[in-house]
Design a protein around this nucleic acid. Sequence first.
DNA 1: CTCAACTATCTATCTCCATAGATAGTGTTC
DNA 2: GAACACTATCTATGGAGATAGATAGTTGAG
Lengths: 195, 195
Amino acid sequence: MSLRYALLALLSVEPMTGYDLYKEFESSVGHVWHAPDSQIYPELRRMEKDGLLEGEEVAWGQRGKKRQYHITRAGTEAFRDWMNSTLEYSRERDPAHLKAAYLEWAKPEAAREQMRAHIRHHAAQLEQWRDKVREIEEGTSPMLARRLASLPTSDREKTTAFKKFTYQGLISRAEQEIAWAQQGLALIDELYPGG
Amino acid sequence: MSLRYALLALLSVEPMTGYDLYKEFESSVGHVWHAPDSQIYPELRRMEKDGLLEGEEVAWGQRGKKRQYHITRAGTEAFRDWMNSTLEYSRERDPAHLKAAYLEWAKPEAAREQMRAHIRHHAAQLEQWRDKVREIEEGTSPMLARRLASLPTSDREKTTAFKKFTYQGLISRAEQEIAWAQQGLALIDELYPGG
DNA sequence: CTCAACTATCTATCTCCATAGATAGTGTTC
DNA sequence: GAACACTATCTATGGAGATAGATAGTTGAG
């Protein structure tokens, strides 16, 4: 159900087409939330049916057209309600740690490769998030600039502060995961002294 | 697909019924992997069909019976193959951080409550994982004891070391999440001085 | 002009998972 | 011996998400 709110969050800044939203999920926002277009388009139609959005045909070139959605008052309310409700935390399902718990089954080199993959994955995320923080600090994010422009001055501080806070949390998490996997590599070396 | 390997991991220690496995997922193992019984029973049947397990009717009381599964050679191989392959990391989907990024939409008290819920959730996990580490150190986990008993002495060190390593990673993560949410609470206080 | 890359949207299928509820036997307790 | 909690297994339904592929128009590069 969070996809719906991720979409509302983006549409609260400005009207967008399904493709615009898909692009956002592929790039910047995609590092907090991801969705394929095949999930986005039907969800937008459902949201329109539910009165959260309104779609409008827009000309695109000579013969082309696209459907641009803007958030309705009901959509804004639904998003605000979601923001004011407390999130349910769901059960754990963590393949990386599941595997780590049984690493004695793997060949040492496979175990090391698993740890390196963990590091690579989180290092890539880390880089993305550090970029995001830099963008926020330097004001070079067009999306954030547009959002800020639509807000009264008094609210801009909060908006940037919460964004920075979010990405800093993700940075800490990535750093922690990398440190853990590095300990893993050290442990493997220790347990398999021969190689 | 990880459910299958979580089941193989447990069944590599000793034969179990679907209900035994369900109980494991509800308690200890459930903090790394969770699955409802309605997912476990069909998966066990599929695994038997695929030759990874063999099921056997076992008497239970006078008229009752249950189906106990034991892992086959092919099942052991499949698990070992999985352990020797490198995990694919899937895209992010993180409702807590999605919400955090838009916390300016929430009332201050709702924002605080969200952070407190985050702390509660991870504090509960933290406690579980600290218990697990304690169990490993003191050798009071029956499941681990049985696993160790089935292993040559030379392998026991690795098994306990990787388990401890796994849980310590989860502990660090939980601590990090709690620290982050506490920073969130401080930030909210700072941004909303009135209360 | 043409080709490739991109924009734009849609459908189909499959797995995974959550939720709910049905059924039936066991073991303990009052 | 009735009630209750627990063991044991199963089915149904629906949402979420991954993957793949179809269709069609646009734009820019060579």
